[in-house]
Design a protein around this nucleic acid. Sequence first.
DNA 1: TGACTTAATGAACGGCCAGTCGGTAAGTAC
DNA 2: GTACTTACCGACTGGCCGTTCATTAAGTCA
Lengths: 213, 213
Amino acid sequence: MQIPSRAPKRRFRRKDARPSEIVEAALALFTDRGFAATRLEDVAARAGIGKGTIYLYFPTKEELFRAVVRRRLVPNLDAIEAMIARHAGSSAELLLGVAARAQQLIATDIAAIPKLVLAESGNFPAIAQLYAEEVAKRGLAMLERVFARGIASGEFRPLDPHCLVPVFTGPLLQMALWQQSLGRHTDIQFDPAKVIETHVDVFLRGIAAASDA
Amino acid sequence: MQIPSRAPKRRFRRKDARPSEIVEAALALFTDRGFAATRLEDVAARAGIGKGTIYLYFPTKEELFRAVVRRRLVPNLDAIEAMIARHAGSSAELLLGVAARAQQLIATDIAAIPKLVLAESGNFPAIAQLYAEEVAKRGLAMLERVFARGIASGEFRPLDPHCLVPVFTGPLLQMALWQQSLGRHTDIQFDPAKVIETHVDVFLRGIAAASDA
DNA sequence: TGACTTAATGAACGGCCAGTCGGTAAGTAC
DNA sequence: GTACTTACCGACTGGCCGTTCATTAAGTCA
């Protein structure tokens, strides 16, 4: 019934490489169009394959999104977790390291993922849950421990570690979101490196136990 | 051609009240479904009118969104601006007041607007621009002035006022976004009041010029 | 009361796209 | 070579929803 319209394109069979290529293409398009507005046909085109091929590897568009989060974001969290585990110096130095790492990530396309999750959490609870469990919960626990340690050692003031987490991450998140959304539609500019440097400076001074510069 | 199917619903003519009612219904639905996923038919139903009626007052769905931003968010910005203008005490007290005001707003449905703008900025540049010009730019200038004043008076350390703005607003934004998205899909809880209190405490101590508690 | 104005209605239209599936061709075994 | 397996393709379907517009009825005025 279907007349293969014209010159059929050259095919290659590469079962192993496909999933990563699709995830890569999907993140790139989700990043600048949003999840809902991205057509799977375009993802396929960018990955250099046909639309149907995506369905050989991912059962639905939503599952593809979950794969993007798992393959691109979670490994970075692992790396930060490892960094914290192996750290020996002061807690303040550790936070500086975490912030530096976050700043690196903000410069990559990975920074778009939080925006996407935020935007789609209403329509795709499964995505929100994945992110909450595998990203937010882990990151929260991680930072709470860092703060608790610094307080226990007398380095930081005795503030609630749970409350300190969003205080610390808020400005980092704001930089990531700004770059991914409003920053593209206005002449207002922020230099993420400078803002984060200021933030860490202010934050560390603000939680320091006593005399400290 | 169209057979008015069944018992036509009772009509009322209320030209003046319609726009606000529509905006109200739209914000409520946008809030928990997102902009793209909200059907105009549902907005109409919630406002107690027919679908076509919306088009008597708003030319497109996008324009309706712009109206939501303008009617609900901008007046609050005006209020904060006025508060700053009339303030006489220290800059630290002023920032406390601004944070308290933000905390109040976070408890209302207005907190959903930033999430919506963020989410749709890619697909609707006009919305991003409206927000950037009439909300972000004004808010930025406002806070920069507060910081500059505090620095000039010797109350704050000489940090870059431009960089301080996202440092100050980041945690506030994060609380608003958390409540509107992830907070609904996980058992991780934050008490916005406590987090903001901690933030302001840490922030003020972090930017204070010298000895100060 | 009847003529007129205009707010309000909702069926129908048109365009879009996730997901399906019959079919093609690259690779493989013999 | 021939038969077979399976990665891959893309036209098509079905449903959704923003927008239109012919029609209806509420209000107004003489």
